Computed example of a mutant assay.
Amino acid sequence: MSEITETVVTFSVGDVASTGRIVHIADGTAGQKIVVLDTTAAHPVDSAWPDQGADRGSLTVDGSTLALLDVVVCATDGSGFFAGSDIPVKKGAEGWTFVVGHVTETDAALTLGTEVAVEIDPAYRRALSAGHTACHLASLALNVALADDWTKAVAADGRGVANFDGEAIASSRIEEFGSTDVYRLGKSLKKRGFDKARLLAETDAVAAAVNAQLAEWVGSGVAVDIRREGDTLIARRFWESALPGGAASIPCGGTHVRSLSELAAISVTLDASEDGTELTMRTTAVAS
C-alpha cells in the first residue's frame, strides 16, 4: 500500500468547496468506491461518536460529477485500510493514519494523483451547523440550571460550571436546526453526587430555566470561533464563544455557525423516562 498522509480538512473554517488530489482508492460495499483526497471540505461522520452526520454534496473528476453518497472517517496502519466502524483502534492511535473517505458509486477509472473538486450542499451544512451550535449552548445552559443539584465536587464544563452534560451524556445526535441528547440518570450518576429528585419533580421548570438562559445568550449575538491546533483530521479543535457570564470552550470536531446573530432563537424540551433513569433533551434552533 502506498503511503497515505493525514487529510487536511477545511470544513472547520467553514469551507463548502475544496480541491484535492486522490491519494488512495478503496473498494466499498455494493460496488462503491472510497476516495481519499489530500485536502477536503467534506465533514465525515465518525463512527466512534457519530453525533454529526456526513455532509452532502458531490465530487467532480475529469469533468464528471459524482454523487457524494457518504463521508466517513477511515484509517490505515500501512498494511490495511479500514472505514467507519471497521476501524479497530481509537482515533489518534500510534502508528495509524486517519483520513477522510469520500464514498461514491462510479464505473469511472479513478487514478491516483487526479485532481478532484469537492462541492458541499451549503444549505444542509448550515442546518447542521446551526443544530450543532444549538446543541452546545443547550448543554451549557442545562449545566447552569442543574448546578446546585450536586452534593459532591464534580468536573467542570468549559465555563467552569458543574458538568452534568459531561457526566451523564449517553448519546447525542445533531439534526438540521436541532439535536437530541439522551442522559443516563442511574446509580453511577448518584454516586458522583447528583441528586435527580428536583430534576424529575420539576422537569418543566428546569426546561424553562434552560430556555431563559438560551434566550440571553442568543440575544447577545456573540461570535463563535473554532480554535484549531492543526489542519489535519485528527488535530484537536475547540468550539469557543465569549458568552455573557463566562466564555466557553468545548472540544469539538463538528461544524458551526460563525455567530449567534445567525440564530433567532434556541429552545429545548426535557422529557424524563417513566422509570426516571433517562432524560431526553430535544433542542430546536431557528435561523435569523
Rank of each mutant, 00 (worst) to 15 (best):
residue 3 E to M: 10
residue 7 T to D: 06
residue 7 T to K: 05
residue 8 V to W: 09
residue 8 V to L: 13
residue 9 V to D: 01
residue 9 V to M: 01
residue 13 V to G: 01
residue 14 G to L: 03
residue 18 S to A: 15
residue 20 G to P: 09
residue 22 I to F: 08
residue 24 H to V: 00
residue 29 T to P: 11
residue 30 A to K: 14
residue 32 Q to E: 14
residue 41 A to E: 02
residue 43 H to C: 06
residue 44 P to M: 04
residue 45 V to W: 02
residue 48 A to E: 13
residue 49 W to I: 04
residue 51 D to P: 00
residue 53 G to Q: 06
residue 53 G to M: 07
residue 54 A to T: 05
residue 54 A to P: 08
residue 56 R to Y: 00
residue 56 R to D: 09
residue 56 R to A: 12
residue 60 T to K: 07
residue 66 L to A: 01
residue 69 L to V: 11
residue 70 D to R: 03
residue 70 D to T: 03
residue 73 V to M: 04
residue 74 C to I: 00
residue 74 C to T: 05
residue 75 A to N: 02
residue 80 G to C: 08
residue 84 G to Y: 04
residue 84 G to V: 07
residue 85 S to H: 13
residue 86 D to T: 13
residue 86 D to V: 01
residue 86 D to R: 11
residue 87 I to M: 02
residue 87 I to Q: 01
residue 92 G to P: 00
residue 94 E to K: 13
residue 96 W to V: 07
residue 96 W to L: 07
residue 97 T to F: 07
residue 100 V to I: 09
residue 100 V to R: 03
residue 101 G to N: 02
residue 104 T to V: 15
residue 105 E to A: 15
residue 112 L to M: 10
residue 118 V to A: 05
residue 119 E to R: 14
residue 119 E to W: 00
residue 121 D to L: 05
residue 123 A to D: 15
residue 127 A to D: 14
residue 129 S to P: 08
residue 130 A to T: 11
residue 130 A to P: 07
residue 133 T to E: 02
residue 134 A to G: 15
residue 134 A to F: 06
residue 135 C to H: 05
residue 135 C to A: 13
residue 139 S to M: 13
residue 142 L to F: 10
residue 147 A to I: 08
residue 151 T to E: 15
residue 160 G to R: 08
residue 161 V to F: 07
residue 162 A to V: 11
residue 163 N to I: 08
residue 163 N to M: 07
residue 165 D to S: 13
residue 167 E to S: 14
residue 167 E to G: 04
residue 169 I to E: 09
residue 177 F to W: 14
residue 177 F to D: 15
residue 178 G to W: 10
residue 178 G to N: 11
residue 179 S to V: 06
residue 181 D to H: 03
residue 181 D to Q: 06
residue 182 V to P: 04
residue 183 Y to D: 03
residue 185 L to V: 05
residue 191 K to D: 13
residue 193 G to R: 13
residue 198 R to T: 13
residue 199 L to Y: 03
residue 199 L to M: 04
residue 201 A to Y: 00
residue 201 A to G: 08
residue 202 E to S: 10
residue 204 D to V: 11
residue 204 D to R: 11
residue 204 D to E: 14
residue 204 D to F: 04
residue 206 V to S: 02
residue 207 A to M: 08
residue 208 A to Y: 04
residue 209 A to H: 03
residue 213 Q to F: 01
residue 214 L to M: 09
residue 218 V to I: 15
residue 221 G to E: 07
residue 223 A to G: 11
residue 227 R to M: 08
residue 228 R to P: 02
residue 228 R to S: 10
residue 231 D to T: 14
residue 232 T to A: 12
residue 232 T to L: 04
residue 235 A to H: 02
residue 237 R to D: 00
residue 240 E to S: 13
residue 241 S to C: 11
residue 241 S to R: 05
residue 245 G to F: 02
residue 249 S to Q: 12
residue 249 S to V: 12
residue 250 I to E: 11
residue 252 C to T: 01
residue 253 G to C: 00
residue 256 H to D: 04
residue 259 S to C: 10
residue 261 S to C: 06
residue 262 E to G: 10
residue 264 A to M: 09
residue 268 V to G: 03
residue 268 V to N: 05
residue 269 T to A: 12
residue 274 E to M: 08
residue 279 L to R: 03
residue 281 M to E: 10
residue 281 M to D: 05
residue 282 R to V: 15
residue 283 T to L: 07
residue 284 T to Q: 14
residue 286 V to Q: 15
